[in-house]
């Protein structure tokens, strides 16, 4: 009797430990899509908008001259210093609105969260940049 109970104890402790360590069920990893190496982040007038060169060059087939320097200054993020860098200007066909007018590319008043990554997205990017910087120092 005592032996059997000891055996049972071992079995249950074994089961407990083994199953404790296992993940209860797999959840598909929600990994972020690969962003380009140098994300352009606009934080004015609102946090935050992400511009991805890769998509615009590779997928949309744009060349540098298509945007620079007529629509956007070369210097990254400098456009946000302009007073009129806001959605209204985009709707009037300025800045991103040159293409994002519903004909060449999706209209500026649709698919907001495609470009707006929000405060959460911004902070995530900062963290990511920070950790990659600190890891490259080593």
């Amino acid at each position: 009797m005592k032996r059997n109970i000891l055996l049972l104890l071992v079995i249950f402790v074994g089961i407990g430990f083994l199953l404790h360590a296992w993940p209860s069920f797999s959840q598909e990893g929600e990994e972020e899509a690969g962003y380009p190496t140098y994300p352009i982040i606009f934080t004015k007038p609102l946090k935050a908008v992400l511009f991805d060169h890769k998509v615009h060059v590779e997928k949309a087939g744009l060349s540098c001259e298509d945007c620079h320097e007529d629509i956007f200054k070369m210097e990254a993020g400098s456009t946000q210093q302009n007073e009129d860098f806001n959605m209204d200007s985009l709707y009037k066909g300025k800045y991103c609105g040159v293409c994002h007018n519903g004909e060449m590319a999706f209209a500026s008043n649709t698919r907001c969260a495609s470009c707006h990554i929000g405060v959460m997205g911004y902070e995530r990017l900062l963290k990511k940049q920070h950790s990659s910087e600190s890891s490259s120092e080593h």
Partner: peptide, 30 residues
């Protein structure tokens, strides 16, 4: 989701060793 946490997740040790074995199976058998 909860029962999976009991059967093979963060509560599995509590569940199998304490609840099932010490709490139910052992006393019943003894």
């Amino acid at each position: 989701e909860t029962i999976m946490a009991f059967l093979k997740g963060p509560f599995a040790f509590n569940f199998w060793v304490f609840e099932v074995f010490l709490g139910l199976v052992l006393p019943f058998l003894v």
